[in-house]
Design a protein around this nucleic acid. Sequence first.
DNA 1: TATGAATGAGGTTTCATTCAT
DNA 2: AATGAATGAAACCTCATTCAT
Lengths: 198, 198, 198, 198
Amino acid sequence: MAPLNEEQLHQIRDERREQILGAAIKVFARRGIIGTKMSMIAAEAGISHGLLYHYFSSKEELFTTLIEDAMEGAEAATRGVYELPGTPIEKIRALSMEMLDESGTPYFMLIHHARTSDGVPDKVKELIDRHDMNAFIERLLPLFREAQQAGEIVEGSPEELISSYLSVLSGLMVLNAQGIEGYRLPDVDMLLRLIARP
Amino acid sequence: MAPLNEEQLHQIRDERREQILGAAIKVFARRGIIGTKMSMIAAEAGISHGLLYHYFSSKEELFTTLIEDAMEGAEAATRGVYELPGTPIEKIRALSMEMLDESGTPYFMLIHHARTSDGVPDKVKELIDRHDMNAFIERLLPLFREAQQAGEIVEGSPEELISSYLSVLSGLMVLNAQGIEGYRLPDVDMLLRLIARP
Amino acid sequence: MAPLNEEQLHQIRDERREQILGAAIKVFARRGIIGTKMSMIAAEAGISHGLLYHYFSSKEELFTTLIEDAMEGAEAATRGVYELPGTPIEKIRALSMEMLDESGTPYFMLIHHARTSDGVPDKVKELIDRHDMNAFIERLLPLFREAQQAGEIVEGSPEELISSYLSVLSGLMVLNAQGIEGYRLPDVDMLLRLIARP
Amino acid sequence: MAPLNEEQLHQIRDERREQILGAAIKVFARRGIIGTKMSMIAAEAGISHGLLYHYFSSKEELFTTLIEDAMEGAEAATRGVYELPGTPIEKIRALSMEMLDESGTPYFMLIHHARTSDGVPDKVKELIDRHDMNAFIERLLPLFREAQQAGEIVEGSPEELISSYLSVLSGLMVLNAQGIEGYRLPDVDMLLRLIARP
DNA sequence: TATGAATGAGGTTTCATTCAT
DNA sequence: AATGAATGAAACCTCATTCAT
């Protein structure tokens, strides 16, 4: 009886959902949760604002969904670093490039907004608490220890090394995600000097 | 019941003005222009929101005033670097420390918000355009050239070196200004490795 | 794949129509015209909300249709009272029971909503004006006069007697139609004491 | 320093609050919580809709405040019945008149809406549960028992007597509160026949 | 006939700004 | 100078209604 079969409907829903998520991440990344108006997302996605609410029940839910995805992505990236080929520092280099990559930064910017804004839903606060810097450090600890043993990076507390290095990367990602004139993303090889043994 | 004389009134006005500006920079730095409500500034300054409008005609004007001050401060800091004692890289080191210093970052955060937000008055956009990264680069160019000639920092385009190095500092200031748990501000000496000759 | 013939289609249309009207009266009775969403009616009827608009062009039309039916039903009930067996007060008793009867109250509740709400279409207002309390009074006047002459009910203006008695019944129907805990529908015999000669 | 002293401000706030509550009860009583728009209350009170939110943080809170008052009023009325002069049935008569009195009915209508509507805040549901019909019955039980012993009202379960009688009163209040043409509020003496011994 | 995606008018709520005192 | 009551534009969200399939 149905005029469109279930599969077609499912496909439309999925496409629209992705379309909205894609539009939302763009706008949220640039403007944060308060600065983003639902009408902006709708306009970016090329749909009416009413339709947003067929797919996400509120601005909060939309934001939370994106944060969840971003968290998963960030986690996967750090986990996946061990699968990469090469010496330890080559793996760190590859991870750095991935993090600074254009496509990844909006997600990172989103996390930045989630950390720093105030109108952020409680669910997101929990998510962030569970996926905080310490989790990253722990996941990267074996890799940095290995690199130290191989004499590829400087001595000293590997935890501090990781958190300092990630902070530099984070700061750059935040700047980069805005797409602002004037800032220059440094070369990965320049960044590696922060930790590399001379 | 003799009224205050003109001088006393003038003094009150000036004190209040500073009080408001101090409160405003704190709040703006943390929340950006959209996320900041006039009532927050009033509360931070310990006055009524109505009184704000005796001193600044709008949120825009208040923000713009702060940006102007911040620009001047940043300019002064880079100009002043030549007066500092020591070798070129010691001057760069001192400038870096000043930029990352707690007291300076709110101003920097403000500029960051001004660059990245959209609800920013046109006057501010002009200010930013006039004081952009290129201006900084030009002011620091002699210093970096000198450092290269002294063999203290690496070879290569000094412009690129400056803009990369300032971008790293900027990113860190942005993170730092938020006062968020988890991020670790790297040591200045670690940062200098980005540009220092091994 | 032969399409249904015209008669079958007609039958489907009629069934659907009744199905929708039945669902609508339930929901409207409980929630009134503003509180009722088209999606509620669709859900109650087990169809899609889009289909509602094949049968009724708007919420207004649906509501109006129900009111028309309810009015006719109420009129028929009061007219039919004369056909009932027994003495006058026995007829009044039977009419009272019918009005308080579970199945009749949703219609009455509907009329109540139509009287008291504001989002009510003009056509409904006209309907109500034409079928108002006075019409009921006039139709019941002979019956009550007869009952007075038979010494079964108290003396006094029969019009006032009827309108007071109907108001009590109406109030109870309104309470009853909501199906709320706590209210107790009085016995018909108790109610008859309002008008019965001791 | 304050341009208006505290007392004057307090008085303004109190007056406005009462003004708003008075306007709100009128509109809520007629239209229920969903049917009432904040702009209607503002218009009725002769103020801007924005000002409503200086005094009540939401439509919910405004409604809840009114319900609390209404509950207290209803409770006080039934408690106070024992202080009234006269025989038991005279006290019941006085209570009945008070309940049907013009000024009391909007409050009662409010409770009716709270009971029957769906958009009602949870806090209100709790309030209603705590002040339900059973509470009324218990408070009136001694009075009705006394009246039975004095032979003033009919025999039988006093609980049923009370709840039936209160239901009739409730139904009438609901009709009455709407101020609709056509319904006639019966005489108190007529109503007393429901329970009075012949 | 039947479905549910899509639209947009209208309601609730927030907050920058004005103004009487 | 100082306060806080008051206003209204603009944002979020709901839901009656339309329309492609």
